[in-house]
Amino acid sequence: MFVVGSFFVLKEKEKVMRRKQFIWIAIIIILIIFGGGLWYITNQKSTSKDTIVIGTQNTDTAVWEHIAKSSQAKKAGLNIKVKDITDSNSINKATATGQIDVNGFQSYAFFTTYNNKNPNLNCKIK
Rank of each mutant, 00 (worst) to 15 (best):
I29M: 11
A73L: 07
F34I: 10
T47M: 13
I27Y: 07
N43Y: 06
R19W: 10
I25W: 08
I30V: 15
F22I: 07
A73Y: 05
D84N: 15
F34R: 03
K75I: 01
L78M: 13
I80V: 11
F22T: 09
V82N: 02
Q72R: 08
N43F: 03
I85R: 01
I91W: 02
H66S: 15
I25Q: 13
W24I: 11
N43G: 00
I33N: 06
A68F: 04
N79A: 09
K45S: 05
I85Y: 02
G36D: 04
L38Y: 10
W64N: 01
N58F: 09
N89A: 06
Q72L: 13
K45C: 03
L31I: 13
I33S: 09
I32Q: 08
N92E: 02
I80C: 05
E12R: 13
T59R: 10
E65K: 15
S70I: 05
G35Q: 06
N79Y: 05
L38S: 07
F22A: 14
K75L: 05
L78S: 03
I80S: 01
T56Y: 03
K20S: 11
K93W: 00
Q44N: 11
K20L: 14
I28S: 13
K93Q: 10
S46A: 05
D60R: 10
I29K: 05
K74Y: 06
S90T: 09
W64P: 00
G36P: 02
E14C: 11
R18N: 15
Y40N: 02
T47F: 14
V16C: 01
G55S: 06
H66A: 15
N79S: 12
K15A: 14
